[in-house]
């Protein structure tokens, strides 16, 4: 892995880890994990027409989000069932059109195929996510806390939800390039779990998860000469969580 690729992994990790707080707090962890699979046909299409898989993934994720939003508005289906349906449909569609040798790469990612263009993309995504969190912090908190309460402050929940989904789609599309469709879900679940072990306020939670994203990806970059980056990252994230859990509980008992 060269220096740029290492930088891309770290920037993408920080973006995803920070954003994932709101996913977990809204109890969308598994929904987000399933949703990331919607990118597969987009990745297949991008590979077939040889354009960047980031854009293929992003287009399909946004189309998927719009589709889910429209059906959810018209029916009383559970969100998780709808996402499950769209996820399975996309997986089947993607598998039919993708070549077998490309399938493994799209499922587990390939950091070594990233270029300096991706570095610009990673920087842009990080700035967009941090900027949006800064600008819409109150909106995100209120929508997470209570949609009824958000209405008091003339907050348009559809608009805020759409901005949120757009950011999630951006971050997932970037993450897919690095750790792949199957493993990108680890970012949506594990960093906030670690953060919530220690954070007593939302600001601290965002700081802790950001630092956790940085540290775990940095260590995984160092280990990537010996092991494949994506799976290593998930294992490092998990080990940090267990250590944090042990530390917290030992500390409490002393």
């Amino acid at each position: 892995m060269d220096f740029y690729q290492a930088l891309i992994s770290i920037l993408a990790s920080v973006s995803l880890s920070v954003l994932s707080n709101f996913i977990v707090l809204r109890r969308y962890s598994l929904i987000g994990d399933a949703f990331s699979h919607v990118a597969l046909p987009g990745v297949a299409l991008a590979l077939a027409l040889s354009f960047d898989i980031f854009w293929g993934a992003l287009i399909f994720l946004i189309l998927g989000a719009i589709f889910i939003y429209l059906i959810e508005k018209k029916t009383s289906f559970y969100l998780e069932s709808l996402v499950g349906f769209v996820f399975l449909f996309s997986l089947a569609l993607g598998k039919i059109f993708i070549k077998d040798e490309e399938l493994i790469e799209s499922l587990f990612g390939n950091i070594k195929s990233t270029s300096t263009n991706d570095l610009i993309l990673a920087i842009l995504v990080l700035f967009l996510i941090l900027g949006a969190l800064f600008k819409f912090k109150k909106e995100f908190i209120l929508i997470t806390f209570s949609e009824d309460l958000a209405a008091n402050y003339r907050i348009n929940k559809h608009r805020v939800n759409f901005i949120f989904l757009f950011l999630v789609s951006l971050a997932i599309s970037l993450g897919i390039k690095i750790v792949g469709i199957l493993l990108v879900g680890s970012y949506l679940v594990i960093p906030p779990l670690f953060g919530m072990l220690f954070a007593k306020s939302l600001n601290k939670l965002i700081l802790i998860t950001g630092f956790y994203g940085f540290l775990t990806s940095f260590i995984s970059v160092l280990l990537s000469n010996y092991f494949e980056f994506g799976p290593t990252l998930v294992l490092v994230q998990s080990i940090f969580f267990f250590l944090g859990f042990l530390f917290k509980n030992l500390f409490k008992n002393i």
Partner: peptide, 25 residues
């Protein structure tokens, strides 16, 4: 100006914010 106090069963209490932070929002 209308203010709504929602039912507390519809509130997501897992949000890691303190009462002080909540009011300062």
């Amino acid at each position: 100006k209308v203010s709504l106090v929602p039912q507390i069963k519809n509130i997501n209490r897992f949000l890691p914010i303190t009462v002080g932070e909540f009011f300062s929002l």
